[in-house]
Amino acid sequence: MRIIIVGGGKVVYHLAKNFTAKGYQVVIINKDKEYCDILARDLKGVIIHGDGSQPATLREAEANKSDIILALTSNDPDNLFICQLAQKEFGIPKTFSIVNNPDNEEIFKNLGVETIFNTTKLISLLIEQRVEVADVNNLLSIEEGKVSISQIHLQETSPVLGKTVRELDLPHDIVFGCVIRGDDVLIPKGDTKLLEDDKVLIITLPEKQAEAFEVLSGEE
């Protein structure tokens, strides 16, 4: 596998290290001469100082022999151009790009970029999910929301600490999936005691979910 990475600041170094460790061939294109020198010293791989949106630079990077291109610059028009040039002129089948302006996700998709990382949207989504309910994590909803799998992180305020599963006053239609304690995963039995910092995985009907959260977290 041969991967070309364009731009990307400090992320590039770690990505390239990771990819080379997996045995991929990595080519890095960067506009910053000094940064290229540092990368060339510390990384195995081809480092090219240049503008990745120029055909000559991609030719130098032997783009026609590459399988993947990653456009990670902070400039969206540059990223789009890089991906399209790689695709149209050099036949690179897989194009990845970040978009800095979240509105550009749709545009990039329409204009043929295969995989798009909408960093702004991802970060704001993650924050919203965390802020809403700090210790409840909806993991999965199955059959269009008829069954949900969620994870509840037991805080010190939880009323179930020290109790066994048998002692819990849980509503019907709730199944205890497992308990994650540190690095261990326990399959709970009637005599399993719940402790602070346990992560409890439950399978519920959506209408019983709120009730289950109340019993386990103590919050209404």
Binding site: S53, P77, F81, N110, L111
Partner: peptide
């Protein structure tokens, strides 16, 4: 690169 993006938004989208 800006020109290419704007031209394609206009023409394709």
């Amino acid at each position: 690169n800006v020109n290419a993006m704007v031209a394609q938004i206009a023409s394709e989208i």
